[in-house]
Design a protein around this nucleic acid. Sequence first.
DNA 1: AGACTGTATATCAGAATTGATATAAGTCCA
DNA 2: TGGACTTATATCAATTCTGATATACAGTCT
Lengths: 100, 100
Amino acid sequence: MIGKTEKRKKLEKAGWRIGSAADFLALTPAEERYVEMKLALAHRLSETRRRHRLTQEKLATVLKTSQPRVAMMEKGDPSVSLDLLVRALLALGVTPRLTN
Amino acid sequence: MIGKTEKRKKLEKAGWRIGSAADFLALTPAEERYVEMKLALAHRLSETRRRHRLTQEKLATVLKTSQPRVAMMEKGDPSVSLDLLVRALLALGVTPRLTN
DNA sequence: AGACTGTATATCAGAATTGATATAAGTCCA
DNA sequence: TGGACTTATATCAATTCTGATATACAGTCT
C-alpha cells in the first residue's frame, strides 16, 4: 500500500502538474489508473529500448520521430498520447494484450 | 487462421480506408496489431455499455462527450484515439491490465 | 579543462483529435 | 403510416498532439 503523499510526489516528479492536495484528491480512480497505465507503458518503453541497446536517437529514427519526443515518451509526459506509446512498443515487437 | 481478404474486408467495414491490396499488404505487423487493439477496445466498449443498459446518449453524458462520438468510438473509427477509448473503458470501471 | 555521447527541456507550426451540431437512417410499436 | 427512440454519418472550430529544432544538462574519457 502506497501513501497518497508518496503517490503524489511520484506523479509530480513525472511532470503531472498537480497544484494542491485538493486537486490531487480530485483525480478520479479512472484518471489515476490512466496515469498509472501511461507511466507503466513509458517505463516499459525505456526498458525495451535499453534491452535492444538503442540510444533514444536511434529509436527515434526507427519510430520516425525525434530524440526529444522519445525522451518525453519515456517520461510518460502528459503531452504524449497512449497511441504514441503503444505504437512505439508495437514497433519494438512488444505485444500488449489487454486483459480484463 | 483468418485469410487476408477476409481480414481486409473486416477492416474496411470498420472504416479503415485501404485502397488496394498492395496498400493493405503494406500494413506492417505492428500497424495491424494496433488496428486490432483498437477494434477490440471498441467492441469492448460497446459490450460494456450494453451490459450497463445505457444508450449512447447517456454514456456520452457520463463521458462528457456527444452521442455521435460514442458511435465513432464503438466503431473503432480511425479518427478516435486509443486514449479516448481507454479513458471511456476506465470510466466504466473496466480495468485493462497490460500484460506481456 | 575540453571534446564527445546520450538524455532532458523549451518552443512552435502543422497535423490530428475533440465535442458539438445537424441530420439521416434504422427499429419498434400502436 | 407515423411517431418515439436509438444509432450512424457529415462537418467544423477549438483544442491537443506531433515532429522538428535549438539548446541545456549529465556523464565519460584523455
